[in-house]
């Protein structure tokens, strides 16, 4: 195994595993598709990274964070659904950014670039992936209660604004990291598919979280190894692996 392959496997497992765990919260809020527009906004940032030769996630991150903070403020101000605000903020961001950026340079950002990941980027993925995992784990009950009924959460003393911010920042980090693994077009799949597969076979919340994380990590390992063996890009193979896992779980669906 080459050092590059090892680094991409480590990065992939941390990014995909924590993305899938976060995905269980997003799926419960019917927000799994939100990572899609977020990934699209990451594209101009990723293009900048390609033009100036730095890491894709690093380029994507500020764009996604600014967008996320805008959504957070607008949600408090307008009381519109987060998914509607996401569509507004990110479509506007993409449209504005694409006027000025050399989009032809962004092609590599569409399907990810994990095979070229370096040591520092791997360390960053491990730290940020773990951070997201811990943040989600510590605030899981609170965010789940907000997902079920916001007023109920408020009267139970939960600071809804704070937890919404933690939740959105976790999404921002995962989307930025996800751009490196599967590209800006497919970040939604990192959160949505393993969580949907886990939901098919879970009876309890614990099973839901654990299985989703495992499906995400397994998809990254299988996808990256198949990429090394076949020469196809890793991003699409990671997503196709998780789609295959989803297909296997469909007959066991409990609903």
């Amino acid at each position: 195994m080459t050092p590059h392959l090892l680094l991409s496997l480590i990065s992939g497992v941390f990014i995909a595993g924590s993305a899938a765990y976060l995905g269980t919260l997003m799926l419960s809020r019917k927000m799994a598709v939100v990572a899609g527009p977020l990934g699209h906004l990451a594209l101009p940032g990723a293009a900048l990274a390609l033009v100036y030769g730095f890491n894709l996630s690093l380029g994507a991150f500020p764009f996604v964070v600014v967008g996320i903070l805008l959504i957070w403020r607008l949600e408090i101000r307008t009381k519109l659904q987060m998914e509607a605000l996401t569509a507004i903020v990110f479509a506007t961001g993409v449209a504005a950014a694409f006027l000025f950026l050399p989009i032809n340079k962004a092609e590599a950002a569409l399907v990810g670039d994990i095979s070229k990941v370096g040591l520092y980027a791997t360390i960053a993925s491990v730290i940020l992936g773990s951070l997201v995992f811990l943040a989600v784990n510590r605030s899981y009950s609170e965010i789940m209660l907000i997902n079920i009924q916001e007023d109920l959460a408020k009267t139970e003393g939960i600071n809804v604004r704070l937890y919404n911010l933690i939740y959105l920042l976790a999404i921002a980090i995962i989307v930025a990291l996800g751009v490196d693994l599967v590209g800006g077009l497919m970040t939604a799949a990192l959160v949505a598919i393993p969580a949907a597969a886990a939901k098919n076979v879970s009876k309890t919340l614990r099973q839901f979280g654990v299985l989703s994380g495992m499906f995400g990590a397994a998809s990254a390992i299988v996808g990256i190894l198949s990429s090394a063996a076949t020469g196809f890009p890793a991003g699409p193979l990671v997503i196709l692996t998780s789609a295959a896992i989803f297909a296997i779980t469909v007959p066991a669906s409990r609903v």
């Binding site: 209660l145 009876k203 309890t204 919340l205």
Partner: peptide, 15 residues
């Protein structure tokens, strides 16, 4: 909560 994998015990565990 209709389509959530959430048992009654899970629901109480949220608090």
């Amino acid at each position: 909560v209709r389509d959530m994998p959430l048992t009654v015990e899970d629901f109480f565990a949220l608090k």
